[in-house]
Amino acid sequence: MPDGSFSHPQQRQFNPYTENGGTILAIAGADFTVIAGDTRQSEGYSIQTRYAPKVFRLTDRAVLAVNGFAADGNMFVKKVKQRLEWYRHAHAKDMPLRAIARLIQTMLYAQRFFPYYVYNILGGIEEDGSGAVYSFDPVGSYEREACRAAGAASSLVQPFLDNQIYFKNQTAAPGTSHPTHLPLPDVLSIVIDSFTSATERHIEVGDGLEMYIVLAKGRSAQSLEGMRGLQELSTRPDGDRVFVIRKELKKD
């Protein structure tokens, strides 16, 4: 051919990645953490399923949210859980949160040249009883924060969180100051608002919402009692406790 279209034999390269949509989010309180994610899984314009969890309980004090390429995400969670079980067998206790965070960083960086195409947010209770959120990029860079959104609608949610959690661009009334941590009911409201907003404006977000709540040892669960769709997932009532609240989001 004169146009040279056959001069290089063309080869279609197999793409081992895809994006499965959805959004995750975590907010730390003084003695609790909320980790949430929607339950829609999609590819392109198709909704594959309306219920595919992205948030997983790891221990009684750690919850991991995984978003991006679902196959990598599920495999990654499987391997983290396996490492935590090995730790339990070796040390007869659950791995502390900051150690899980470092474990996740090394596991992600081990795949530096064929990365897990996932954004991770780890939430839970630190050994000192404080609420903590760790967020990661796909190759393991991580930091501890008070709040973080990731996934398809992260650009919609994160600035909202800056405003409502960090009180960015707001000045406190004279003689007062902004609280460093919000109470649990306020945080839950902000999480729900974030997801209803993201559902409204992003096609890959919706169907269902799962909010995991980790309470520090000794903290009262009173503010959760009577909430619709509440379920406790802790293995023991006298340590850190894990709850989940499931809610519906719009399906369109």
């Binding site: 919609l156 600035p159 907003s197 409204e200």
Partner: peptide, 11 residues
């Protein structure tokens, strides 16, 4: 615009 959508939808 994406950020504006997110915050406006919330506020």
């Amino acid at each position: 615009s994406t950020k504006l959508f997110g915050v406006a939808e919330g506020l």
